[in-house]
């Protein structure tokens, strides 16, 4: 693994915003539902929702963040964001996210970062992708059907990576 010892899931994933069963069935819908959830949880300002949706969708259209294995990590930056926040979403039926392997996506991490701190953004992406490459992590994440179960999985990872 790289060097992101200092960033953990619990530092940036907003527990209250976690969506154990996404209602959206398409790419733009998933992005909107996840950003809405962050706003409802008070993690981002409500008047930023539109901007962020278009930013993340625009980014996604330039190149999918569905890199395969049933996972995707849509993300974006905004100058008005004060701190980095993320939300986890799960779809038991899967969503066509134009993934590189053309397979449906079941697990999403949506990450929003301030423009001012690219290093922290890279650290969070490292934490996310290091874990998404672990078969057991993906399997457990896909099976976790409540907010609490998803959060406990992230907590477990945070604790096991503590040196």
């Amino acid at each position: 693994m790289g060097s992101s010892k200092d960033v953990k899931f619990c530092d940036f994933v907003v527990k209250e915003a976690i969506i154990p069963e996404l209602e959206a069935r398409d790419r733009a819908g998933v992005i909107r539902e996840m950003i809405d959830s962050l706003a409802k949880a008070g993690a981002i300002e409500a008047d930023l929702v539109e901007d962020l949706c278009s930013e993340v969708t625009k980014r996604e259209m330039k190149g999918t963040t569905g890199f395969g294995k049933g996972v995707a990590v849509p993300h974006g930056k905004h100058p008005r964001l004060q701190k980095m926040v993320a939300v986890v979403g799960r779809s038991s039926s899967g969503v066509d996210f134009a993934a590189l392997d053309k397979q449906p996506v079941y697990s999403f991490f949506l990450l929003l970062s301030p423009v001012s701190d690219p290093e922290r953004h890279l650290a969070a992406m490292n934490v996310i992708f290091s874990n998404l490459q672990v078969d057991m992590f993906r399997k457990f994440l896909r099976q976790s059907d409540t907010k609490q179960k998803i959060w406990e999985l992230l907590e477990e990872v945070d604790q096991s990576s503590r040196v």
Binding site: G2, N126, F129, Q133
Partner: peptide, 25 residues
């Protein structure tokens, strides 16, 4: 490969692995 204490190396043909290099400027 990235040198950071211990050497860390990834498959240059995997996006997911490349991102875990956490290579800032």
């Amino acid at each position: 490969q990235k040198q950071c204490g211990e050497c860390y190396e990834v498959d240059g043909k995997s996006v997911m692995q490349m991102i875990t290099l956490e290579a800032g400027v």
